[in-house]
Design a protein around this nucleic acid. Sequence first.
DNA 1: CGCCTTCTTGAAGGATCTCAAGAAGGGTGG
DNA 2: CCACCCTTCTTGAGATCCTTCAAGAAGGCG
Lengths: 253, 253
Amino acid sequence: MRTHSDLQPFLDRLNSRSILTQQEQQAILDLPRHAEQVRSNRDFVRLGERVQHSCLVVDGIVGGFSQNSNGARQITAFFIPGDMADLQSVVQSTPTTALQALSVATILKIPHAAIRAVAARYPAVAAAFWRDCMVDTAVLAQWVVNIGRRDARARIAHLLCEAAVRLKAAPAKGDVVFPFAVTQLQMADATGLTPVHINRTIMALRKEELVTIRGHTVWIHDWDSLAEVADFDPEYLQIDVRPEQRIRIAEAC
Amino acid sequence: MRTHSDLQPFLDRLNSRSILTQQEQQAILDLPRHAEQVRSNRDFVRLGERVQHSCLVVDGIVGGFSQNSNGARQITAFFIPGDMADLQSVVQSTPTTALQALSVATILKIPHAAIRAVAARYPAVAAAFWRDCMVDTAVLAQWVVNIGRRDARARIAHLLCEAAVRLKAAPAKGDVVFPFAVTQLQMADATGLTPVHINRTIMALRKEELVTIRGHTVWIHDWDSLAEVADFDPEYLQIDVRPEQRIRIAEAC
DNA sequence: CGCCTTCTTGAAGGATCTCAAGAAGGGTGG
DNA sequence: CCACCCTTCTTGAGATCCTTCAAGAAGGCG
């Protein structure tokens, strides 16, 4: 029996793809952490800065981004509650992606030292962390396809489909409704388009009665049609890997 | 003292970012493997196929790609000799990226079971593998920026700059020359452009006396200017991480 | 030598961008 | 609770980058 923990969503995520013993799970739940509130639009991890902790998103939406020398931003990843936004910094001395709160967000800072200790003690936990990072990489690869090989309409549709599935709002009968506190400007930075064109395309999708976005809520009126427009196949998200397909690295010592 | 091994380039790569003991290094060099020749344009890892080995590129160039349902390809990564193209499949049961030989290529197939055994035995080796994957992820994130936030001229320039640095041809005084067996069609698939536009843009770069591409060789005539056009900063490639910045996960048992 | 891939060139069309400005919305302080 | 400000959304018109379609030239390989 386990008391409720703010690390539970993260453990749930690991458990959906990895096989961990009770002891290993407890070691993760016992990780030290420190909660912090971040205001909307605030960069809280910058490139080049040494960091000593990873950030688990507890509430809100966080964006990973890079920018070119003109200052134009490119968002490369969305992180939702349960995601460890910069787990990779456990094995790298400087972050490779900057992080920005897209909405008001609560994050949990977890010291690298503690994560490394657990990873060293339990090879299967290290593998679970590694695996979790590779899921993010697979999502990133799809992001490249989205930007490189789809037009604006499909790009936006794909972004929304991905968000719906990751937020567990889809698939579902009838309207797929979920909170999505991302501005059109941020969507532009995510899709490699301009805010103006995002706006026009969203309005076109609404006129087609596929999607309505109002306030910070998205309604997908016809999931199948939108998925087809988006050319969306959720496989890459690796939601719920079947137990018999899960790989466990056994301890040797 | 160590005999020459076809795994040496891979070990060199790990050693440039990780700290490994003699014993750990030997364990890597002792990994079983099986060489294989792949013809140009041949897909040798497909999505959805279970694989039991990872592929180390020994010779030639390999592309990682996805495609949309129209069949349009998007190349998401180039792999050059010394790169383990699908190391991530060690912790995932199905590959998340397909692999295609862009030129004639020699690859070394290394059984997952053996890699997992080494990773389980030596936490620092597991961390080195994980770290190597995270470098690929950082490159992928830059790829998103390249496609999302740069025009055709800068995209191509960036691609060439990255190739030059990874192939250790740059930076250098005078012409930067390196072999690059990638067709314009493949460059189009990598940059999210059409082959026609790739062609015109390359010709424009040549007219500016920045770059000449002929046969399978690239000449960069003015490295600094091209890097500026590309908005290229090699930091993300993490070539030669300084020893004092390297992180080692200590064994606990 | 012949075939198939790759490169090159032209012309026209379209998707997306840029610039500009006004409307709507949300938060904050008086 | 209202007024204000700043962010976000919306709309228009013109410009441009890139695509599409088409076809011929060049190059590499058996």
